[in-house]
């Protein structure tokens, strides 16, 4: 299956606009941005969405935070 990339480019641009920064190139950065995007989508700051906890710095903690966000936002 060959996918057509044009619409995706638009979505990547929209994503960058939402998170306010270019999409990252590393796993940790991407996980942080996913947390940020989920929080923003829910109309909250990450700290509020995570109950006052700042965005984590390690993969495991970020995945935990994502699990919390998936369950609560």
């Amino acid at each position: 299956m060959e996918a057509y990339p044009f619409a995706s480019d638009a979505k990547v641009a929209a994503t960058s606009a939402l998170i306010g920064q270019p999409i990252g190139q590393q796993e940790v950065t991407l996980l942080k941005q996913i947390v940020l995007a989920m929080a923003l989508r829910a109309g909250q700051t990450p700290e509020v969405a995570l109950g006052g906890t700042p965005i984590a710095q390690t993969e495991v903690l970020l995945l935990q935070q994502l699990l919390v966000l998936v369950a609560t936002t």
């Binding site: 619409a7 638009a10 929209a14």
Partner: peptide, 30 residues
């Protein structure tokens, strides 16, 4: 990394399959 990027894009776009114009509407070639 690619999958995480795509998850990020999907989340940021709210699961909405249609991006705003000009990307609105797309097709997948078979």
């Amino acid at each position: 990394v690619t999958l995480l990027k795509q998850i990020l894009v999907a989340i940021a776009n709210g699961g909405e399959p249609n991006p705003p114009y000009p990307g609105d509407g797309f097709y997948i070639l078979l």
